[in-house]
Nucleic acid binder design. Sequence first.
RNA 1: CGGGGUGUAGCUCAGUUGGCUAGAGCACUAGUUUUGGGAACUAGAUGCCGGAGGUUCGAGUCCUCUCACUCCGACCA
Length: 487
Amino acid sequence: MNVKRGDQKMEKEKKLVQEITSMEEDFAQWYTDIVKKAELVDYSSVRGCMIIRPYGYAIWELIQKQLDQRFKETGHENVYMPMFIPESLLQKEKDHVEGFAPEVAWVTHGGDEELTERLCVRPTSETLFCDHYSKVIQSYRDLPKLYNQWCSVVRWEKTTRPFLRTLEFLWQEGHTAHATAEEAEEETLRMLNVYAEFCENVLAIPVIKGKKTEKEKFAGAVATYTIESLMHDGKALQTGTSHNFGDRFAKAFGIQYTDKNNQLQYVHQTSWGMTTRLIGAIIMVHGDDNGLVLPPAVAPIQLIIIPIAQHKEGVLEKANELKERLSKIARVKLDDSDKMPGWKFSEYEMKGVPLRLEVGPKDIEKNQVVLVRRDNREKVFVSIDELEEKVSEILKQIQKDLLEKARQHRDAHTYVAKNMEEFEKIINETPGFIKAMWCGDEACETLIKEKTGATARCIPFEQEQLSKHCVCCGKEAKHMVYWGKAY
RNA sequence: CGGGGUGUAGCUCAGUUGGCUAGAGCACUAGUUUUGGGAACUAGAUGCCGGAGGUUCGAGUCCUCUCACUCCGACCA
């Protein structure tokens, strides 16, 4: 943290934000400051792992709850698979193993005894689901199988950052089996849409829906679809993915069923996942120099009540009464610790609490309270009689405004490049999404990455004809692609 | 895995050419007064100087190794 030396007054005024490095100065440091100061995580004794603290975990629980509800609504059931995968099982699908081999952790001993076959700590559970499906699917009447699991997975990454990349992370992985290729494709897209809707309405993060290029797709998939979002620093983040496996895994694992005509057929599968990385996205999309900013839908505390002059008669009683009332419509906390009010203001701003309620002797006299929004610091005096109404109205408005603000930021940082000079200039001077035409040749994709560090984020469903020529080689263009540097 | 930075109290750091019992501010605990943007005073508690080895009469300080965190690249959610 940089403490700027100045006269005493300046220092005092600056004190409020001193705990957090400004975004502009150092975005990466800003991110780490927030994660620690907002008490989302702590580092653990194992390199690259994190302890998710109560406040951070509460955000995850809200994400889980709202995602899970959507999975249930679309007919999915939760299951739990073991965390260990025998080596032989992992190796059944060639592309899949090759994709994950460099980052799996192995268990070689049980107690003192060496295992006859070493076990991999799941980096993802495709092989386990496939093995299981091969046993429980016999007839077309057994299909579709719509399973999901909530668990943690382990990937031995080289560099790590809280939420964005850790050795172990929490996620959900949906795994489904269908009778036909059409049904599998339909499911893949259905879940991508669920993700997109969730991101926009719950996380207030706008996303671009599209397809991954061959180079970027999941190990073993026929097609990978993705939702991509743009962080405040202009870098892209893959927010969720949905894969269509076709019958590749079915063939490798022998998952067959008998159809209506008594013919043996292979199933068609999908998988889709979202992770605790979403919390990183929330931080980097909505946060500001005063700390975290949480969309109300995932805020563990939606409203913080701060009593002013709480030692005076009637103040705490009133604050408690308001807490009781408002708890019926929102997640409310009353901070009656003996910290100074100003300290509390900063504390809950740092933690991203969407709405603050101040109540003091003067308010009680006038039968009013003060409401202050976290996102824009807007302050309103509200009559206690219409409090419930106002609070829910403002929370709704914040949720909406955050999405709109994020959308504007993304749109303002989405550029068009017609040639490589433009491309490189944008990447170096104004980071963000770059829309550019592509011939479909992997060589161009690789060259762009080498020259600029940007990767193909996705081939968006909503295509535009920006030009007839590939941004890289100038040959005939096949797709418009979103490019960007990514986390 | 390559390059840079940092490890001393819970946090931010000071610690002289190697020298006695290792320091400050904040935070913490108790009490009193305070309370509309990080309060004041009094009293108190707090250390495997990241770890291991070495040099030395003597190491927080010098040397070697190692571990962790962090940033920037290559790989991935």
